[in-house]
Design a protein around this nucleic acid. Structure first.
Lengths: 191, 191
DNA sequence: GTCTATAGAACGATAGAC
DNA sequence: GTCTATCGTTCTATAGAC
């Protein structure tokens, strides 16, 4: 149920590759990051990178796979809820958790224009599309605007060095509270 | 006082160039947009593009120049205000106006990682830095988080096709109201 | 102002040795 | 798993004709 993106190469070097690639993707964008730059940062050759992934696109998808899976699971949890308030509450808590726990992947996925096209071409944008549907679901325009602004806005505090020093717990609490205030949600309907 | 980015080439073709380049930049990012792609979209050759700007960086800066100038002016208006509420109110109205009127430039400037570095290298990031200082100014963490989330979050509704059909006036009103709710601002202190 | 043609570098990707 | 070496393509940028 959580396989999602298919086979991914095993090995220990893969973890370092994911780390380095993700950091550079978040810093310069995926189009602005060459495989040469990644290899240099790792202290290996470009061919060594190609051992782990056969194409650059697959590398990007491999780095982003964990969030894609989490997103799918989150959307399922939301749609399982009944009632407008319960869904909004689940959405706020879910998206905040996801964004705080994987803030670099979140930034690359939501911020980079090239990634959106890539995910769509590989039919992996389903999670985002369903999330977008949920965002558009509310009848009133006011809630739709607030919801769209909130999800995208998570990028801001998460890539601000001054705010990330607060630590995950404080950040999570702050962002959840901001989301509730924005969407005018009462606290925890059916926890 | 509003010269800002220095001399920019004149001529009518420049306007079309700005239009086409901006649209592609917003769609694929600046690193994902080649001068060849811009030339093709315009129906001219690559060399024709180089007539207007000597480098790609200068083209990017030329396209973004209007927002850079507006941002500088906005920061001046904010710092001229006295009092926490007045400043927050001015900031919300200013940034919403800027984002709605130039939403593509706003998206490229705020969303593209490569642009941030470019502006910094050309000492044009001053406006954003001062805005960032204003965002960090409030004593309480809660307001800083909300402010950061709000500014970045404007990207969301602005690039959602379903929401942009609402038109600039409705969008402006909606976003301003969301901002006030988020930052708990009373209406128009000293208009 | 726009063109053709091209230089020179960087890119993604592959082959084959170790 | 990592290397060197290389292929073919695309990129930014320039030169010079019209």
């Amino acid at each position: 149920m959580t396989t999602g993106t298919g086979r991914r190469p095993r090995g220990a070097g893969r973890l370092q590759l994911h780390d380095v690639a993700l950091r550079l993707f978040a810093q310069h964008g995926v189009e602005g990051t060459s495989l040469q730059a990644i290899a240099d940062e790792m202290g290996v050759s470009k061919a060594a990178v190609y051992y782990h992934y056969r194409t650059k696109d697959e590398l990007i998808l491999g780095v982003l796979a964990p969030v894609v899976d989490r997103l799918t699971a989150m959307v399922e949890r939301i749609t399982a809820r009944r009632g407008r308030q319960a869904r909004l509450d689940e959405l706020v808590r879910g998206i905040v958790d996801l964004a705080v726990d994987n803030h670099e992947q979140f930034a690359v996925m939501l911020g980079d224009p090239a990634v959106g096209l890539l995910l769509t071409n590989h039919a992996l944008a389903q999670g985002w599309d369903e999330l977008a549907d949920l965002v558009r679901d509310p009848a009133d325009v006011s809630t739709r605007v607030a919801l769209s602004l909130f999800v995208t806005g998570l990028l801001g505090p998460l890539r601000d060095p001054e705010l990330t020093t607060l630590g995950p717990e404080v950040l999570r609490a702050q962002l959840t509270e901001v989301g509730r205030r924005l969407l005018q949600i009462r606290r925890r309907p059916t926890p």
